[in-house]
Write a protein that binds this DNA or RNA. Sequence first.
DNA 1: CGCCGGTTTGAAGAATTTCAAAGGGAGTGG
DNA 2: CCACTCCCTTTGAAATTCTTCAAACCGGCG
Lengths: 245, 245
Amino acid sequence: MNDVSSERLAPLVRKLASLGRLSQPEIDAVKALPITIRDMKAGQDLVRQGDRPSQACLMLDGMSYRFKIVGDGARQILSYHISGDIPDLQSLYLVSTDHTLSTLMSSRVAFIPHRSLHHLIETHPRLGGLLWRDTLIDGSIFREWMCSMGRRSAPTRVAHLLCELVVRYRNAGLAAEMTIPFGLTQINIGDSLGLSVVHVNRVFRDLKRDRLISVSGRKLTVLQWAELKRAGDFDPDYLHLAPEG
Amino acid sequence: MNDVSSERLAPLVRKLASLGRLSQPEIDAVKALPITIRDMKAGQDLVRQGDRPSQACLMLDGMSYRFKIVGDGARQILSYHISGDIPDLQSLYLVSTDHTLSTLMSSRVAFIPHRSLHHLIETHPRLGGLLWRDTLIDGSIFREWMCSMGRRSAPTRVAHLLCELVVRYRNAGLAAEMTIPFGLTQINIGDSLGLSVVHVNRVFRDLKRDRLISVSGRKLTVLQWAELKRAGDFDPDYLHLAPEG
DNA sequence: CGCCGGTTTGAAGAATTTCAAAGGGAGTGG
DNA sequence: CCACTCCCTTTGAAATTCTTCAAACCGGCG
């Protein structure tokens, strides 16, 4: 492989390295994955509910999110995905997709054939374990969101989500200090947390008023991290950031 | 192995067979897993938040459930587990457990050393794939619960949960007709769906009044399945019951 | 400049929670 | 075997959070 294609998969290598130590042959095998790269605009579907994808999506840049539409037409957002994430990794073993994956902003996405990933897992079982681990962390995040939606107040939910985004961006090396890219609309936040836009707006207003956060353009800055964590009942353990073992 | 121990793992074999076709050597390998069986009373912890288990729990009989306690002391129930389920399978690759697993009623539980499971996965990669698939279905159920808690009304949530229990019991061959074992208290249901007991009680009263369900002792009977499904906005796709492929 | 999607605000309404207390039912110990 | 106890269920009433509706505002983009 040449330098260009090897650099292209750097976000994936970094992500896997954050899940567990990688050997050089493993790194090489990951970098050798055949990929197709596409630049996508905001609001485009990557996988639709009911699809049976034959490739997995790897986020290189930008952000994507998963959601379901319930009976009365309301939308529930399930997760957000940044550089290095493979949002539909579960499609490797769950042939029929039960939700939709879309870009939240203009994004660069790599498509990796399932065939290649299955082969990678067979030849490098440890990498398979790391990918498995990644899907388990995905599930852990769902569990935490369930706690938020079931048992936390609206202000706590919003603060919690912001904390999660900050920690994940920082962990991926995509945030300087306490400022993160912030492409979510308040509509998105409402659909993530089971709240109406109006209410999200009011909670946001209070968070700004209390100088916990500030938003300017598409950047969000945490002004008082300890306070925001407390307000959001946030404990990062569920993100399982410490590598395996 | 003798007949006794092979029979003991029948729930696991059946579960795996429902996830994908098993070869005879694979069945034999599963049956050969070394296990410790314990009979447990209701309300005992199997794994606690923060634990680093060295074995996985397999439900043989009874029911267990997972939950988290949030900052203000409220409890969020995350899932229920019946015969054949391995509720803490994620501990194979997520060393630190982020929630608690307890018995909901008196149960028979088998403990399988992680070491044995890791060895099984190495020697029988296809079984590894099925177990992975099982953890992915776990995640899919979380996603559906998120939809319920975020975007469904209380009556819909309750009906949805009942539908799920019915389908899962029937799929596991543990329910005759439309009657299932029903050990959940209304407190449990509230903590599962993000509702107060009082409100659960009122919703339940309506479901009985409208003759969608009836409860007697520790059995629940669905009187009008089509109606209950509709009331619960229930589509079983998310359970991914059709075997892989 | 005008449009479009997102944000913000006010006011009224609905769903659900909280508080309080009484009523069952199953197991336990006397 | 009965009474007691504990937990769960049930009901009423008041309180609260959050939603809905409606409309104005704002900012970026074509």
